[in-house]
Amino acid sequence: MESTHHGLWVIAVSIILGLLAAIYPLHDSLAWSRPDWLLLILMFWLLAVPEHVGIVLCWVCGFIQDILLGVVIGQNAFSLAVIAYIVQVSYQQLRMFSVRKQAALIGLLELFRILVDQWAQNINGVAHTHWLIFLPTLTTALMWLLVRPLLSWCQRHLMS
């Protein structure tokens, strides 16, 4: 049993880095295309170690993200909890997907997250939005091609 809990700090550190990347100031031209690092990192751990990362942890991470960003409390918590559920009931099939297919799926999940964000902000008074808000769908999907090998390297070398 000792070995299963060994290296959980890697998960914690990666999640904290993901939260920091979500608030790190970017230049205006890059800000629209900021990938959803938290979703990418949580997706990896949901698929890799479903016995450690589940709905509750994802909800807590989303809740912290809501507080950090100063947005409507609950919007990221809600979308991450739903995504965690979807992955948890089907991770055995999703693991078998090719990397590209996984990336496409993550783009779709990111779209879901953006739509939830927009809905939550609209009913709380934000009226106008720009169509560029959908750009992270693309960048998040592309970043999966980078994040997956990186985190699986971490998992192999730091967690065993």
Partner: peptide, 11 residues
Amino acid sequence: LLGGLSLVLIL
């Protein structure tokens, strides 16, 4: 439980 809680928080 958690989804319902966050929906209530949003609303």
